[in-house]
């Protein structure tokens, strides 16, 4: 199996912050429409693709939304003040280049501060290179959301780019949709919205689908960098099978089935325990009368920065594990 870099690059670089997922949704829908039986878009904007089968009803969810910055105020000189959409460390924003939906580019910088290490979102602004409020308003309205200006880099071993969280999951779902055998299970692939602000899309999608089994495919933090916490997941160590995070304790049946499958097929895997953070799986398992839920995670360094890093081998292991599981 090889990674389709041009498709992945397109998925990763397409605009779609939480609540404004339209562009990425259209891209994904076009990519998969010939391989699925039905595509639906619900009220919140989830893309739900159904590949019919006779077996268990399985919902597989990756979120297509990204973190971003929303313009909340424009001052007389034309500088834009913003609030964060999703979890962002203010310090990581300094000097960051950003892009709005209409292509307007800008840079984030900070007011003059006494102490640089106490930087808050309130102290930052976006400069889009205009001269005055009116000029800015021609390009950016209050409520518009910008994302990090993307640069997609790859080496023989890794991919470096913002928004691998969770476009890499979307890529894995798309490849699975395309390559899965004539399936025995009834598969619902969900490209969910608003995960970064509280797993809202997965909640409503799970309600309409009523799956027997839920599975989230998302990135997870690694603990192999200098002075990191004493947790288990490492880059290059294969697909991470979730045991627990803040939103979910994985159901024993699902976790054990994934481990057995990985062992049987010789797929490199590791077990994931995460102290913070959650995924769509957290929302899915609480739906209606309860759903047996687990998750496959892609190890990813520097999550929510402009330089997220994943391993190509890990991606392939996740792909193989997901494909084997749904088949």
């Amino acid at each position: 199996m090889i990674i389709d870099s041009s498709l992945l690059k397109e998925i990763v670089t397409t605009y779609g912050p939480s609540s404004r997922e339209e562009k990425i949704r259209n891209l994904i829908a076009n990519e998969i429409k010939e391989y699925v039986d039905e595509i639906k878009i619900d009220a919140l904007g989830n893309l739900i693709a159904h590949k019919k089968g006779l077996g268990k009803k399985i919902m597989i969810s990756s979120h297509m939304d990204q973190i971003g910055l929303m313009a909340i105020d424009i001052d007389e000189k034309g500088f834009i003040r913003f609030t964060n959409i999703g979890g962002i460390k203010p310090a990581l924003l300094l000097g960051q280049r950003v892009r709005f939906e209409n292509g307007t580019i800008g840079v984030v910088y900070s007011e003059k501060l006494e102490e640089d290490n106490k930087i808050k979102v309130d102290n930052l602004y976006i400069d889009i290179g205009t001269n005055g409020r009116e000029e800015t308003l021609n390009k950016v309205k209050i409520g518009d959301i910008c994302i990090f200006q993307n640069e997609f880099l790859e080496s023989d071993k890794v991919i470096i780019s913002p928004y691998l969280d969770d476009r890499i999951g979307c890529y894995i779902l798309i490849e699975t949709i395309k390559n899965v055998m004539k399936n025995s299970n009834d598969l619902y692939f969900v490209f969910s919205v608003q995960e970064e602000v509280g797993m809202r899309g997965a909640k409503t999608a799970a309600f309409s689908i009523e799956p027997d089994i839920g599975l989230a495919v998302d990135v997870t933090s690694t603990f192999d960098t200098p002075k990191s916490e004493k947790l288990n997941v490492k880059l290059f160590n294969g697909a991470a099978i979730k045991a627990m995070d803040y939103s979910l304790i994985a159901h024993k049946d699902i976790k054990d089935a994934l481990i057995e499958l990985a062992e049987a097929k010789g797929i490199k895997y590791q077990i994931e325990v995460l102290e913070h953070g959650g995924t769509d799986a957290g929302a899915i398992h609480m739906s209606k009368s309860g759903v047996k839920t687990g998750a496959i995670s892609i190890p990813c360094r520097y999550i929510h920065s402009q330089s997220e890093m994943v391993s190509k081998d890990d991606i392939i292991m996740c792909l193989e594990l997901l494909k084997a599981y749904v088949e």
Partner: peptide
Amino acid sequence: QYRKTSSGGNDAGEIQVSRSGSK
């Protein structure tokens, strides 16, 4: 006017994710 702060919250939080969701 716009409500410019991102803090606080209201009933929309629960209403939008009830059942299959609403706008």
